[in-house]
Structures are given as C-alpha cells and as structure tokens.
Design a protein around this nucleic acid. Sequence first.
DNA 1: GAGATATGACTGACCAGATAGTCATAACTC
DNA 2: GAGTTATGACTATCTGGTCAGTCATATCTC
Lengths: 212, 212
Amino acid sequence: MTGTMAPAPKKRRKAEPEERRQAILSAGLSVFAADGFAAAKLDDVAAKAGVAKGTIYLYFGDKEDLFEQIVRDAAAPVLDQLQGMVALSDLPTAALLAKIFEVFRTQILATDRKLVTKLVLTEGTRFPKIAEFYHAEVISKGLAIIQKIARRAAERGEQLPSEIEHFPHLVFAPMLLALLWDGLFSKFEPLDVEQMLSAHHKILTASPLLKR
Amino acid sequence: MTGTMAPAPKKRRKAEPEERRQAILSAGLSVFAADGFAAAKLDDVAAKAGVAKGTIYLYFGDKEDLFEQIVRDAAAPVLDQLQGMVALSDLPTAALLAKIFEVFRTQILATDRKLVTKLVLTEGTRFPKIAEFYHAEVISKGLAIIQKIARRAAERGEQLPSEIEHFPHLVFAPMLLALLWDGLFSKFEPLDVEQMLSAHHKILTASPLLKR
DNA sequence: GAGATATGACTGACCAGATAGTCATAACTC
DNA sequence: GAGTTATGACTATCTGGTCAGTCATATCTC
C-alpha cells in the first residue's frame, strides 16, 4: 500500500506472517473437509496449524471468513491448471482431451485440491458467495475451455460430438463423479478412475457425428 | 408388515403413529437438506413436523438415528423406480435410456427424492453406514441395471458404446451433475437438464462402436 | 554494544449463547 | 382411572469468539 520502498523482508517475530496464514489455511482445509463447516472446530484448526485459537482471529474475521479464504486461496492454483490446458491448444482434439483428464487425475484428484472442490460441492449451497465465486472463477472458465475445444474440433473436422459445444458439462460430469465416489463409495466398490476416463475419452472421440 | 388383517384404519390418539413418524421424517429431510446434519436443529424439525421435541425421541433414538432412517426410508421409493425401469426391458435400448432419463427428471430431480440423494452425497462421508447402505441399495443396483442394458444391447447389436458395460457410471454421471448443479450454480447459470440429457442420449446412442 | 524501554504478535482461560437430549407432568384413550 | 403417549422446561455440554496479559524482538539511550 504505502511503503513502496520496503525491499527487505527481514525475518519478523516468530514466523513469517504469510507462513502462519498458510498454515492456518491448510489446517482449516483439512479440518473443514473432514468434518464439514458446521462441525469443524476452530480449536482443531488451531491445534493442527500449531497456533493458539486467538491467532486465527488475527488473520481472519471469523469462521466463515476463514472458510471463504480457504476456497478463494485454493482457486488460484486450479485456475493455473486450467490456463495450462488452453496453452496446449494446438494439439489434436483427442490428445487435448486426454491431457485434461490426466491433469484432473494427477493435479486435482491426487492432491488436496480435490478437498476444495468437494467442500464447494458439499457446503456451497449454504454459502452462496462461495458458490458464485467458484462458479465464476473455476466452473465457467473450465466449461468455456471445453467449449472452445469443441468449436475448434468442429472447424478442423475432428471427432467430437457436436452436442459438447452446447453442453461441455458432459465432458466434466465423469470427473465430478470420480471426485464424489472417492471417499464415499470407493471403500465398498473401488473405481478405476483412469480406466473410466479412458472409456469416456473413447466414447467422446469415437463419435461419428462430425467425420472428417 | 405383520398386521395383515387390519382393514379399519380408525382414528387413533391424535394421529396415527405412523403418520407422526412420517411427519417427522419428512420435516427432518427438509431441515437436514437445508442446513446440513450438524447445523440442523431438532427444534426446527419438531416445529416443522408439528410435534414437541420430546416426541422425536419417542420415535427415534437420537439425531443420527433420525438421519439414518430418513435416508433408509426414502431409499425404498427410489428402488421402486429402479424396478420400474427393468420392467421396461423389452424396449429398444435407446428408448430404455430415454425412459431412465425421464424418470430421473420427473421422479427424482423434480421431487423431494433429490434431497435425499444430495444429503447422501454431502454428508455421506461422515456417515459410513449411510454411504454403505445407499451404495448397496441404490447405487450398485442402478449400475447393475445399466450394465444389464448394455449387455443386452451388445447381444442385440443395438447402438451403445461397449465401454458402458464396464463403466455404467458414465451413463449416470450427467444426472449427478444435474443434481448438484441445481441449487448450487443454477442461480448463476441455469442448466437445461432435459436438453443436456437429450444431448447425452444422442452421444451414447450414436456411437459407431457396435453397429447393427 | 549493553542495558533499558517499547512494541505488537501471540496466547489461552474465559464467557455467552446455543442445542442435544431428559424427564416430571399433562393430556388423552379406552 | 390405568395405562399410554405427548409436552416443553430444564440441564449439561460444547464451542465461537474475546481480551488481558506475556514475551520475543526491535528500537532507543548512553
């Protein structure tokens, strides 16, 4: 803001403030994801973050504010992933789709990012601000990317059902299912996500609707 | 169940016990769905059901027991729907799929049943018993039906990607998405479920993999 | 540069409000 | 009026949020 000339980030008191913030965010994510917003205890968050409960209130307004910042903070990396996808856009459509599925598996499903998405899905209804933010920053952008791919495939005459252009949701739906299946039903019936997405890929790219 | 000879449903005390039970279950469903398990207040459930809080404890052990019974109780009708689907199994595959999508839209998405499914999805992780029950009684049976349809289509040589036989999940995924979209993002970007499912149907039945 | 003083990030015991579950009493049925 | 069902005031507990006090570090004084 004001001190534009402050170049030396010399070590502060105990820990770098940003480090503490991150510690609290990260602890909050895992506690909220495990217990749900309402049942999550700030004492647990504090313990997991290695700070006193009062410290949380130095960085965040209240429990809900912490929740919002957890989601907002985690959305940036997801966006980077999405950006990365578009960057590959001169690949053939089929390869592009494969890449998207792979990024989903390795960068979301296999990491803490899946917790954020799950949180949005499970708690979003009660936090319209969060839902709106996530829709605007992640969902709609993701859908737009697929739509772009679909349009380009049509131009190039590559295989992809023309319906995808109007309902890019259909490309994402199985990823959503994979996300929810994990931890809910996977204990009783494991789901081979890689194979499922591969099957999905085949169905999408084998469509005869737009032959070259 | 037992009293097979009870024809006269003469008026009991204030209300038939089963009626009260149902009133509590129904009130519980809407309150749990609106607030989530942890934040749902039994006072609210009682008020909505038109009974005193203590009455709830005459019919249910505790809050968690009420939750479980809500889900179990609502699963039966869902099963009936599923059974109804199999009954139609001499229709052509494409018609069968269309019927399934229609049943989903009119009998689940448009009714309180959608609340149950949502509850399972959003709270299931914290209630393994519920998740297991729902998987065994609804999910796995639903998947089995699709699988059966897929196998039959293969035999008959009707259009349907062979991948569906191994991953019937892919047929359901868009319905799951529709369920979650509703109330989460629909406010910001409405989703025409009927059209989306119709597009999905087209993609599935237009596959060239198994031509007649 | 050593001791004195100031700062504010951090702590955690505490409090107020909320709510799951109980139970003595009331109402109702037969 | 005996037995059964319903009530809602009450209790015990739990947890979000507060704030007076602590102490590591920075700054000042000589």
